[in-house]
């Protein structure tokens, strides 16, 4: 069997003295889109960051395509949360997207017009062709998010790890991201997103990982999103009303017109 894009075994992460992740085990299947869902503070973003080695993990094994990240970096792309960078930085949207190509360009060599063209293509793919030259603070929140996506796209990776790409974006951006996810999947890529919205998760993603410090359940969305699993994840906070919402959002369930 070919190795999975991402496999994590008993990952433990602690911030100072507080445990954030407990023996997290998960497998990401190739060619599918997966959402990591859970309540606030459940360690969703931490999971991604620890997997990518951005924060140290106390113990556990993390394999990308059966190897440690170091060996397969070029196959993995990361889309950080929008808040993580300083948007006043003096670069244009095109410059940011070109950052996805830096590794390919190599040490010390400058960004050439051919690379700028590639960046422009990636920008066009997320519907921002006309904004290429703008300084990034002059873009709206959703557009900034799409610039990040375009950067990951330009990197031409196989596995994309995205931290809350749908957080407070407008409808146009949401559509653009969805179209992008679909395209990545059609090209044989694998996508993992931290996602916060239970209502849309079944509609947007193939697989779901329910996380609350530990992995509660993982697998195809329709199998995982059961009221019982959700109660295990969200505890008493999930009211009957939310369960109704969950039922409705499952594929095949009757939906309001």
């Amino acid at each position: 069997m070919t190795s999975l894009p991402l496999e994590i075994r008993s990952l433990n992460v602690a911030y100072h003295r507080k445990m954030v992740l407990w023996d997290a085990d998960l497998k990401i299947r190739s060619g599918r889109t997966t959402a990591i869902v859970g309540p606030n503070g459940a360690g969703k973003s931490t999971l991604l960051k620890a997997a990518l080695g951005l924060i140290p993990s106390a113990s556990g094994e993390i394999l990308f395509y059966g190897e440690p990240l170091k060996k397969v970096r070029s196959r993995v792309a990361y889309v950080p949360q929008r808040e993580s960078v300083d948007w006043d930085f003096p670069v244009s949207a095109r410059d940011v997207v070109a950052m996805g190509l830096y590794k390919k360009i190599g040490w010390c060599l400058p960004v050439r017009s051919r690379h700028r063209r590639m960046a422009d293509e990636a920008l066009a793919d997320v519907g921002l062709a006309e904004f290429a030259g703008r300084q990034i603070s002059q873009l709206s929140g959703g557009q900034q998010q799409r610039v990040f996506l375009a950067r990951a796209l330009a990197q031409k990776a196989e596995l994309h790890l995205m931290d809350e790409p749908f957080a407070s974006v407008d409808a146009a951006t949401e559509q653009a991201i969805l179209a992008l996810l679909k395209r990545l999947k059609d090209q044989g890529g694998t996508v993992v997103c931290v996602h916060h919205d239970l209502d849309t998760v079944a509609e947007y993603f193939d697989d779901v990982i329910l996380l609350n410090m530990r992995v509660v359940a993982q697998g195809p969305a329709s199998e995982v999103l059961t009221p019982e699993n959700l109660r295990k994840t969200y505890g008493a906070r999930l009211t009957l009303l939310d369960e109704a919402v969950v039922d409705l959002s499952r594929p095949g369930a009757p939906r309001e017109p």
Binding site: L52, P80, S84, V85, Y102
Partner: peptide, 9 residues
């Protein structure tokens, strides 16, 4: 600009 991204790349 984006240290976290640079590490992952």
């Amino acid at each position: 600009f984006d240290e976290a991204y640079a590490i992952t790349a």
